[in-house]
Amino acid sequence: MVGRSLRQIVWARLRRDKVAMTCLVVLIVYYMIGILGPMVGPSFGLDPYAYDRAAISNRGGAPVLDFGGISAAHPLGVEWGTGRDILSQLLWGLRISLVVATTAAFLSTAIGVIVGIIAGYAGGWTDMVIGRLMDLVLAFPFLLIILALSNVLTDRITDLGVPSGNPSRILYLILVISSFGWPYLARIVRGQVISLREREFVEAAVAMGSGRRRILFTEILPNLWAPILVYATLLLPAYIGTEAALSFLGVGVIPPDTTFGAMLANSVNYFHAVPTYLFIPGTILAVLVVSFNLLGDALRDALDPRVTR
């Protein structure tokens, strides 16, 4: 009898979960579009920056055609006031959202894991100080802080040599979002480490005289990947939402680039006249976030040994 590895078990469970597989496919499609869209788009005539003056009337800047100017050239319509193509904006905007959310999720997870392991393994004063630091970070109204510091810190990042404009702004978003996101995971990891610390295989490693670093990273870390994976999968949709909320409030990428949040913020002025401005980006965003959450959920169930199916 060949024992199946945990990875195989989890994968087998996931494959049986139709919802999870659908979500996985949806997400892969999203990432493909995010990566390939801006590369392939121009050869189909897609350009998020091109102004189509003919699509815009002189009467308040409203699109000439109905439903936000939907036509063969602009399958999802055009932007009020400029005539820029909505489909192209969504494609290019998706890439920015995915880059910000994915990188920030990766960074928070990394910080959370490292800090959590250190706190859990070291214990004592280190644990205490880290614990208070986590309390402090968690107590901050982070949306307010991100808003308030956006200009000053973006300038600092530019001073450090990052190109001004959107590169600096995107980096700011990534750094600041991840610096508020790590404590949750750190707590989980810390708890796990504390319980693992007492287990036989760790004690055995200690008895064998293994170095601390070796114990941490080769004995303990591999046992943590399940909660880490689940948590990271759930962080991603949260960060996509955060990025959208920040763009909605006016922090985030600057023109001519745009993201879901900025498009939705702009829709507020016009959506009674043109509902597609609200529902198209909103739905695409919602599908993305819901898929991530469903997948994360399924992953959690698949990794949970208590769940029997």
Binding site: A245, F248, L264, S267, F271, H272, P275, L285, A286, V290
Partner: peptide
Amino acid sequence: ALVGYSLPSFFIGLVLIF
């Protein structure tokens, strides 16, 4: 629950207003 939990609050708010 999952959908509600996932949607960004501003999207929910705007849809309700609409």
